[in-house]
């Protein structure tokens, strides 16, 4: 297995608040990685650094041997990093299919004049993209919803649509920000299976932020715990679960002492 993404000493400060503090982090090819931690631990900030929304204050992020710190999100999408959002951010008034087509935007070649005059090459490209969008919607279980407005879909479907849209960019690394938030146990179980399926069938590396410990412990190849922007523990789910620093971070020192007794 080779390393696909490596963060070296990455920090992100907002004024005097250091949200991510000299974090070293690696993601291996074809693996599922979770980042957990109490609220405000810097998980989403780290996500935003990796996807180009924030430029790291110090340190650098290397993706496929390429320094990507300071690149814009759309540039990173082009080289294979895609994400979903903690609060769903779909293009509400567009159809499900159009949402997915936006994810393909950077792979399509048509320019302004091609768009207006539609030579055969553009027609073929569009037809193929529409078909591919349909297949992706089918893949995430949204067959039959192609022409529905994104905003009219039920919550769970919107989550899937976000994933379909991210997959449409053809990523190598997919970042999922709390993919099971707000889901019932059945939906959560589906999502666990689905994330595994993504890794195995699409050969993806996945980085996820998740609060549901059942999800994290079930699917992760590696779990990393952040607290106050620092990495306090890392390893396989079983190791992290036993780590005293993790229990302390979540429950406090008193709780830890009580557990020891």
């Amino acid at each position: 297995m080779s390393v696909i993404l490596e963060a070296k000493g990455v920090s992100k400060a907002f004024g005097r608040l250091v949200a991510v503090d000299t974090l070293d982090y690696t993601i291996e090819d074809n693996s599922i990685n979770s980042i957990i931690g109490p609220n405000g631990a810097g998980k989403t900030t780290f996500f935003n650094v990796v996807t180009g929304y924030y430029k790291p204050t110090t340190g650098k992020v290397v993706f496929n041997q390429r320094n990507i710190s300071g690149s814009r999100p759309n540039q990173l999408t082009r080289i294979g990093i895609a994400r979903t959002f903690q609060t769903i951010r779909l293009f509400n008034n567009l159809t499900a299919r159009e949402n997915v087509l936006i994810g393909m935007h950077h792979r399509l070649k048509s320019g302004v004049f091609g768009d207006i005059f539609r030579p055969p090459a553009v027609r073929r490209e569009e037809a193929k993209a529409h078909e591919e969008a349909g297949q992706l919607l089918d893949y995430v279980g949204l067959k039959g919803y192609e022409e529905h407005a994104a905003k009219s879909l039920p919550y769970g479907h919107q989550r899937r649509l976000e994933i379909a849209r991210a997959l449409a960019t053809q990523p190598q690394l997919l970042l999922l920000d709390e993919p099971t938030a707000g889901m019932n146990p059945n939906e959560t179980q589906d999502m666990i299976l689905f994330i595994r399926k993504l890794r195995d069938e699409r050969n993806l590396s996945i980085l996820l932020i998740e609060h549901d410990m059942k999800v994290v412990m079930t699917i992760s190849d590696k779990v990393t715990v952040l607290d106050y922007g620092k990495k306090i523990s890392e390893g396989q789910p079983a190791e992290v679960q036993k780590d005293e620093r993790v229990i302390e971070a979540y429950l406090g020192r008193r709780a830890l002492e009580m557990l020891k007794k």
Binding site: H105, H106, L108, V112
Partner: peptide
């Protein structure tokens, strides 16, 4: 021109920007 653009790669990108500029950026639309 307007009709053709409306239903094209560029037209979709415009609408994506209108709906959510940040999300569009993350999806590869400059």
């Amino acid at each position: 021109s307007a009709i053709r653009l409306n239903n094209s790669r560029l037209g979709r990108a415009w609408k994506a920007i209108r709906e959510d500029e940040t999300a569009a950026d993350f999806m590869g639309v400059d």
